[in-house]
Design a protein around this nucleic acid. Structure first.
Lengths: 297, 297
DNA sequence: GAAATAGTGTCTGTGAGACATTATTAA
DNA sequence: TTAATAATGTCTCACAGACACTATTTC
């Protein structure tokens, strides 16, 4: 049974005569915050190396933001979803294809790209340290892993007529082996009696391209939030790991020390013990665990 | 100091010669799941009316999906963010402009719109019942509030080599005063040793346009999740409300009964008591509360 | 007085924070 | 033997689930 529209057309007829309007359309990029955990060098053979949370950045070889560092990403092509575009870019940059990928947020501020109208559909990827193998493609001629730090700098609250405005300034610092980048991202919560709105803005920015400081800050917040109530952090671990290593990963994500006993109780259901142990550390060996693939809820 | 790119251009020169490539670009729509809470009719004067969670849908007046129901929304225009587009559409449809608005997810499946390449940047809006005033614009000639029900239908888990695939089928039912729509949305979690991926697909669909069943299901999940650890539900309340009303709203969102004493302890810090009481109910009056605008963490 | 909701008190079990203690290895 | 990590035990406190009980209004 064919329904007719107000012009008397069936759906088939409508589709045949349909032409996309020639109004302006945005470009859509898929940009990615790729997290991994690496180990710092430790000269004392007895001590465990510290873990570091790192993200991949690529130095821009062209205008705009020439010489600045940007998130890996690229434009979404026809007949491809944003997620496929993200996975494709991830493969191109790091050579890995089986990683945790989660959509974060779509940034669409006007003027965020000075060239043209570009929205960024951003993703977070979690890669186990061992999986990494940076491709030296022409595109990624200058890629580097930056250690991440994201801390509350300042906080303020101002009462308005029927609500308040709360501002939080976070300092985002990124360190590679050769460079140091910094930015301050402000989060503004405007609460009224009937509504609440949250917005982000970049207060200062030294060395990061576009609005990528905002995207990175958003990704860290998401990761921190999810670590507490999901097993998301396990996507950063190799197949076998010790509970102390897992705790170090939690600590470096949360930027906070955790108590061992409580931590082990908390993750007990997320992991399964194996019969393997670490060897040749300068101290007692540690049991190795793997991710629990059974239900734990 | 002007940096030169590999063509020897300064940034200014680059921008002057820049032309957007003529590769294909998608249209981007901002679609909205607008939630509100209404009261069912109650003939027993002593009993409190039940609350119902409702969303706004608009009957399509043209192809494709002619006659089906779709989320309110529209294309994002040049010099406008997706959020501004959503707020603009919300004002056009409901006449309210000061509501809670939160970006949900950007859907980009190929073929999700049979006409052309369209991505949907989806938003969730929370409107207090009293604020509603449906505009009878030509565009929204046929708009209606549908009662929402979203329940787990079936659940299955299959072990694979180094992980599992878990599928959950949710039944989404929508009731207006005249119509009933239904869809089944499947959530698939694919877990491997090194990664986890979640995807959604529409199993069956009766009366909803495009992939909007997926968007609605996603919105309900987000709302249910956030109700437990934020004060998001207060955006659905009028200025003054009783704790029982607030509890009813929590219950209708979570589709679960809550214990009164525990609920009151839980929300104690989110609200502030006033000196007003309900009147002329068929029973003991109830104290009215308002949203707490102080910090409670 | 009856029928309803409003509002509070309290027991119990779970789980996280805190800290202490024992165990085990490599150099 | 020592310096480190591994692993577990246990006390306490906060809080949610469960249920009982009292209070207050309108018809």
């Amino acid at each position: 049974m064919d329904m007719l529209d107000h012009n008397g057309l069936t759906e088939r007829e409508f589709m045949e005569q349909y032409r996309a309007g020639d109004y302006e359309r945005p470009s859509v990029a898929a940009d990615m915050v790729i997290f991994t955990v690496t180990e710092a060098v430790e000269d004392n053979y007895r001590k465990l190396p510290e873990k570091e949370l790192r993200i991949l950045l690529i130095r821009r070889g062209g205008h705009p933001y020439l010489g600045n560092w940007a998130l890996p990403g690229g434009f979404v092509r026809l007949n491809e979803t944003t997620e496929q575009a993200a996975a494709r870019e991830l493969g191109e940059e790091t050579g890995v294809d089986d990683v945790y990928l989660e959509q974060l947020y779509t940034f669409s501020d006007i003027g965020r790209d000075p060239r043209t109208w570009v929205m960024s559909c951003s993703y977070m990827a979690l890669v186990a340290g061992s999986q990494i193998e940076l491709k030296a493609g022409d595109d990624a001629a200058d890629a580097a892993w930056f250690k991440v730090s994201h801390r509350l700098l300042r906080e303020g609250k101002e009462l308005t007529g029927d609500g308040y405005v709360k501002t939080q300034q976070y300092e985002l610092s990124l360190y590679s082996h050769e460079e140091e980048l910094a930015a301050v991202v402000e989060r503004t919560v405007t609460a009224k009696q009937t509504s609440t709105a949250t917005s982000y803005s970049i207060v200062s920015n030294d060395g990061l391209a576009f609005d990528h400081a905002k995207i990175i800050a958003y990704a860290i917040e998401r990761l921190r939030g999810k670590v507490n109530y999901t097993d998301i952090a396990l996507n950063l671990m190799p197949k076998l790991f010790t509970l102390t290593e897992l705790q170090q990963v939690y600590e470096v994500i949360l930027d906070k020390e955790l108590l061992k006993a409580a931590f082990r109780r908390k993750v007990a259901d997320l992991v399964v013990e194996t019969d393997h142990y670490t060897e040749n550390a300068g101290h007692r060996p540690s049991r190795l665990y793997r991710r629990n693939m059974e239900d734990y809820r």
